[in-house]
């Protein structure tokens, strides 16, 4: 039992599509959800993470290892986060924000939310609906009215190629 031999240094995480990942406990406990499980003594075996798929979990673990290898230097951590998120597409970012929310990782949550907000800048209404999978529930008249009310906010919006 883990409790008898001292805290294990490596944890095994299981994604919802049954992929197994080994990760240093010191890095994994950046997630408050995982930390609570460790503190409750459930970390001896495999930790199931039912809301995260293998692809996203692999990415989150890369982040955990990367950020925990940086000593307490906020500037360096910030530049690591920026670089880590720079090549992620919208779908990956959306999966990451869900994972960060579920895993209760505030630093990743802040960084990914800010990145998504940055991507959304100057984007069209149609783009947002597509990317967020939102159904337009306005009637054509209602939509025209709400657009008319905020007409000036449609100036300078990026054009959609794929709409």
């Amino acid at each position: 039992m883990a409790a008898e031999t001292g805290t294990p240094t490596t944890l095994t995480l299981k994604s919802n599509d049954d992929e197994l990942f080994s990760v240093a406990e010191s890095a994994a406990i950046l997630s408050v959800t995982i930390r609570n499980m460790v503190e409750d003594g459930c970390a001896g075996g495999v930790i199931p993470l039912d809301n995260v798929d293998g692809k996203t979990l692999a990415s989150v673990i890369t982040y955990m290892n990367g950020i925990s290898a940086i000593p307490a230097d906020e500037e360096k951590k910030k530049s690591y986060r920026d670089k880590f998120l720079s090549d992620k597409d919208f779908e990956t970012l959306a999966d990451m924000v869900l994972a960060a929310n579920y895993l209760n990782m505030s630093c990743l949550m802040d960084a990914v939310s800010a990145k998504i907000a940055q991507v959304m800048e100057k984007k069209s209404v149609g783009w947002v609906r597509r990317k967020f999978g939102i159904e337009n529930d306005y009637t054509p008249e209602e939509e025209a009215a709400v657009k008319e009310e905020h007409k000036w906010t449609f100036e300078g919006v990026e054009t959609d190629d794929d709409n």
């Binding site: 959304m120 709400v146 905020h150 906010t153 919006v157």
Partner: peptide, 14 residues
Amino acid sequence: RLHVKDLMRFKSVS
């Protein structure tokens, strides 16, 4: 975290 102009436009999303 968005700018106000973007937020005002996104009222039209749904």
